[in-house]
């Protein structure tokens, strides 16, 4: 191999500078809207849209208004409750399904997997209205329980990533434990679960985030029952109604209150997110 000469080195430094420049430009493009909404949350002048980027006066009043608002703190609590409960339940469902389909050979297995795949291809929406009527028939429409059930049961069909991960865990672990007299359920709890940490974190993260970000399912199921709104539909309500002129800066502040913890959580756990998406193909 040739030793790189001086000319090549100069070329390389120039290329690096160009790349650096492109990245800085892209970062600016990506940050402008995010920074804008953050600034709007501190804007002292009211009104929906103003014709300038930086607010003329800064204030914390929008944030103060959030917590004296009749409903906003309640929406946060609603969402948090739904998120925690459905996170725990959907992790359990996902792990059970993934483990069963990864470790056992049984007659209907192929059938299950195919049905799950086909069901996953129906637009979630198509079933949404029907789900609403089912809850209505049993008197749960407009309640958070219905929302928890809907979000959790999503875990039963979202097993692909976890199954892919379990498939990469060596069967010899199971066999060794079984030789020592462990039953399958003991193998699951003692051997598999501790090894499945990355996939548990991924599943939990996704399930925990869903209630904060989904608004269409919540909107159909909760209807006009504003008391039990989650933050997503609550905030959407603020900017989509006729009051949007009054509420825009408060919406911006509310968005920040929701977004900041999620951003931190996500940055903290992004490694697991990547592992989840690539089905454990990326390690490290």
């Amino acid at each position: 191999m040739k030793k790189p000469g001086f000319g090549m080195r100069a070329k390389r430094i120039a290329a690096d500078a160009v790349c650096e420049g492109i990245l800085i430009a892209l970062s600016v493009v990506w940050l402008i809207p995010v920074l804008w909404i953050a600034l709007q949350g501190f804007r002292g002048e009211g009104g929906a849209l103003v014709s300038y980027y930086f607010p003329k006066t800064f204030t914390f009043a929008n944030y103060a208004a959030l917590f004296t608002d009749a409903l906003f703190p309640r929406w946060i609590m609603n969402t948090l409750t739904v998120a925690v409960v459905s996170c725990v339940m959907s992790v359990m469902l996902t792990l059970m399904v993934a483990y069963s389909l990864s470790r056992f050979k049984f007659k209907q297995k192929k059938f299950f997997m195919n049905v799950a795949m086909v069901l996953g291809m129906f637009p979630g929406f198509m079933s949404m209205i029907a789900v609403y009527y089912i809850f209505k028939a049993i008197g749960l429409d407009g309640t958070l329980i219905a929302l928890v059930i809907v979000y959790s049961s999503g875990g039963a069909l979202g097993f692909y990533v976890a199954k892919g991960y379990f498939d990469t865990l060596s069967l010899s672990l199971d066999e060794a434990a079984k030789i020592d007299g462990a039953k399958n359920w003991q193998v699951f709890f003692i051997i598999i679960l501790p090894l499945a940490r990355p996939i548990i974190v991924y599943t939990a993260l996704m399930a925990f985030l869903a209630p904060w970000t989904d608004f269409i399912f919540a909107r159909v199921i909760l209807g006009t029952n504003r008391e039990s709104y989650t933050v997503a539909i609550g905030l959407y309500d603020w900017v989509s109604t006729t009051r949007s002129n009054l509420m825009f800066t408060q919406f911006a502040a509310g968005s920040m209150v929701v977004a900041v913890p999620i951003v931190l959580l996500f940055i903290f756990l992004q490694k697991y997110y990547v592992e989840g998406i690539t089905g454990g193909a990326v390690k490290g």
């Binding site: 399904v97 049984f106 069901l119 129906f122 198509m126 079933s127 029907a130 039963a156 069909l157 039953k183």
Partner: peptide, 28 residues
């Protein structure tokens, strides 16, 4: 809990899927 653990583990998820995915899709 042993050889057919999958049956016990899949029972609740399958119920969920039938009630909240299969029935609604057939309905629609």
């Amino acid at each position: 809990l042993g050889a057919r653990l999958y049956a016990s583990m899949l029972f609740i998820p399958v119920l969920c899927v039938i009630a909240l995915t299969v029935v609604p899709i057939i309905y629609m």
